[in-house]
Simulated scan of single mutants.
Amino acid sequence: MKPLVLEVDSLTKHFPLGGGLFRKPVHVVQAVSDVSFTVAAGETLAIVGESGCGKSTTGRAIMRLTEPTAGSVKLDGEEVTALSSGRLQAMRRNMQMVFQDPFGSLNPRMTVRETLMEPILLHGVASGERARHWVDELLKTVGLAEHHADRYPHEFSGGQRQRICIARALSTRPRLIVCDEPVSALDVSVQAQIVNLLQDLQQKLGLAYVFISHDLSVVRHIADRVAVMYLGRIVEQAPAEQLFADPRHPYTRALISAAPRPVPGLRTASEPPEGDAPSALNPPSGCAFHPRCPLASDICKQTRPELGSVGAGGTLVACHHADAPAPVALEPAPPVSASLAARLAVLAAARQAAE
């Protein structure tokens, strides 16, 4: 059994609104509530859900870019939430982050070499000629050349900029990388290259990933386990293969149903639920999904379900009707390779038509 790198227990992040210096806040946004999971060395846990479900806030709270309201985050057994600012800076050598927008996360006034040298020198990874050599090795590792080191971010494509961000994350030799929508801002033709690069790096270096995404085709390809979030809480957690083959929570089924299918005529499952997610300012009583759920009953409106084991596949579900069959059987989605190949074929046909 691989050692645990990350242990998250009852992580909570609430944002107060209104009030003042001597007054209590008028409202509280319950962005993340009681989120718990673990990630082992060489494992990828994907966090998925609609926009506003709290998945990016969870990633930032793990890194303490946003201070958690409550809960525990342990990296290699050491409590991250209790660290002083100095000790936290030292700990960040072992945990790094790759952001969604590669251009926005790079300083436009710094060359690639300066960008990569900054964390290397800050954390004492190397110095002098060894640091310069380490920069060159990092660029080769992510598929760039040594001469790219003296260029600025605006001189690169989106995919190349994300490779630079990945190189920066690798510069301190971390144990954990939190990837917050790392391919959603990229062209479809580049997404597969970045995902394959992340997988290759994981195999070589034994990295643990928390992979935040809304693209289920990418998640299915890269994830070992998947946690599905709705309105700040995990409603289902399972091995990736198990989750896509037999989703148990109605919200998970809705996400899979809403995912685009690249093969013409391929039928999806039941229609996605109507309406928008409730506000995190005033979440519904009981199960937060009950206003949109086709299986909702009186108990769903009154009592919030807790995560519990369902079946023998390691699935955890927070649903009073987790044993209920899906309204319409899910047709198996094509492999991600076929999905990406179909997307690339459409792009190629569009380019030929334009020419």
Rank of each mutant, 00 (worst) to 15 (best):
S72F: 09
V80Q: 01
G77I: 00
T81C: 14
G59F: 01
I47C: 13
R64P: 11
E78P: 03
E67W: 01
G52P: 08
K55E: 13
I47M: 15
D76E: 15
P68K: 07
V73T: 02
C53W: 06
T66A: 11
T66Q: 15
K74M: 06
G49V: 00
C53P: 02
D76N: 15
T58C: 13
G77H: 08
V73R: 04
G54R: 00
A82F: 09
S56Q: 07
R64D: 12
L65G: 01
L75A: 04
G52Q: 04
A82H: 14
L65I: 14
E79L: 13
K74A: 12
P68C: 08
K55C: 07
S51W: 10
R64T: 09
G71K: 09
V48L: 03
V48R: 04
E79D: 15
A82M: 13
T66I: 12
G54M: 05
G71W: 01
D76Y: 05
E67V: 10
E79S: 13
V48S: 04
V80S: 02
E78L: 11
G59D: 02
V48G: 05
E78Q: 15
G77S: 08
A70W: 03
K55V: 07
A82L: 15
L75T: 07
E50T: 07
G49A: 07
G49I: 06
M63H: 12
E79N: 14
G71I: 09
S51R: 11
I47W: 05
T69S: 15
